[in-house]
Simulated scan of single mutants.
Amino acid sequence: METDNPSRKRIAFIFLDELHHIYHFISVAVELSRNHEVSILTHPAKHELLRNSIAELGGENLKIEELSTYAFRALTDKIKGRDLPRKGFWLKKNKNYIIKNFDAVVFTDYFHKYLLKAKKEGKPKLIKFQHGTPGRAYAFNKSQLDFDFQLLSGSFLYEQYKNMGLLGPHPVIVGYPKIDAVKNKKKKSFFKNKKPTILYNPHFDPEFSSWKQEGIQVLDFFYNHQDYNLIFAPHIHLFQRNKGGYSVSEIPEKYQNSENIRIDLGSIKSVDMSYLCAADIYLGDVSSQIYEFIISPRPCIFLNPKNINFSGDVFYRFWKCGEVIPSAKKLGEALAKSIADFGKYRTIQEQITAENYYTEEGSTASERAAKAIDEYLSANT
């Protein structure tokens, strides 16, 4: 892969993850492809959402390169029922190709170590994107310091990284590109009535998730209270064997057949903000999707079945956005007063959104991110 124009850089976006990562980088990749040679390096698959997103955003110059992992690893992945290749082996297999052909490589997660060790003379530059809004401690990872360039969504993340010593040599606040990637999605209702719709979005990590202790009780509450609609759309890892580890068989069939309950365990709608836009009230625990929900301020309720002492803990900042209850037994009462009490949470939600997502008149987050990468590579490659 050669280019005769030194101002045109060769940039790779690594995509070896589930659907929810796509919207965090795709609009920036499209913007960069207007002036640079940009490829999405991924594994062999249909990649329908990836291809459709590129087409919707006008990314005809954006390339998709499907690179395989080691043949033996591909075989064992198939035997073990893995839909995705193991990232370390894939990167080890393809690192020489990547180093030889690209000026910069963009990651949305932390699987860059093989490439970090194999870099030659500072190339390629490693660029870090978020794959969501910072919530739990996972976002504050010391591996941030491995990257040459960090793209941050807002002032809150910048200040936290600064306080924790996680700012690399070139951090830039650009905003939240996912908003641009899904802006053309039309709001729709998923029920044939105008009853209040609640989105239940438990996290997948058993250490933090409300699902094991309260999930069935939540479904049962709405099954028995037909004056509400429920969208049950958990983190897509919750029912994956190698992640959350829970089984779909745990969900009784009666809930799946209830007219006022919609269950979606991992479709495109569960990651493109469709359900966030459709819901009137958010019910969750520690998923950072809450930050996307409150872009348009609305009532929130949080489940804390483990009785976590969260007061003053920055990693539970999202629980400032609504009432925190210990169990589904308190759900009826919390729902009844959630709208009436919302006034005291609106200002908090608006402040948190302003801290989370930088905005600027006249440009989008994706445009600012592409410009920042362009300027950095022009000066450093």
Rank of each mutant, 00 (worst) to 15 (best):
S258D: 06
S258E: 11
E259M: 03
N260Q: 05
I263S: 08
D264E: 05
D264N: 07
G266P: 01
S267N: 02
I268S: 04
S270G: 07
S274Y: 02
S274R: 03
S274A: 14
L276W: 01
C277M: 11
A279L: 04
V286Q: 09
V286H: 13
V286N: 12
V286L: 12
S287C: 14
S287P: 00
E292T: 03
F293H: 02
F293E: 04
F293T: 06
I294T: 09
S296Q: 13
S296Y: 04
S296T: 14
S296D: 14
P297F: 04
P299H: 04
I301C: 08
L303C: 06
P305Q: 08
P305H: 12
K306F: 14
K306C: 02
N307R: 13
I308W: 12
F310H: 15
S311A: 09
G312L: 11
D313Q: 10
V314G: 03
F318C: 05
F318N: 07
W319E: 09
C321Y: 06
G322I: 04
E323H: 02
P326D: 08
P326M: 06
A328G: 07
A328P: 13
K329V: 04
L331V: 04
G332E: 12
L335N: 08
L335E: 08
A340N: 11
A340E: 13
K344V: 13
R346P: 01
R346G: 04
T347I: 11
Q351T: 12
Q351E: 14
I352Y: 01
T353I: 13
A354H: 07
T359P: 00
E360N: 10
E361P: 09
G362S: 10
S363K: 10
T364S: 15
S366N: 02
S366D: 01
E367F: 09
E367N: 06
R368D: 02
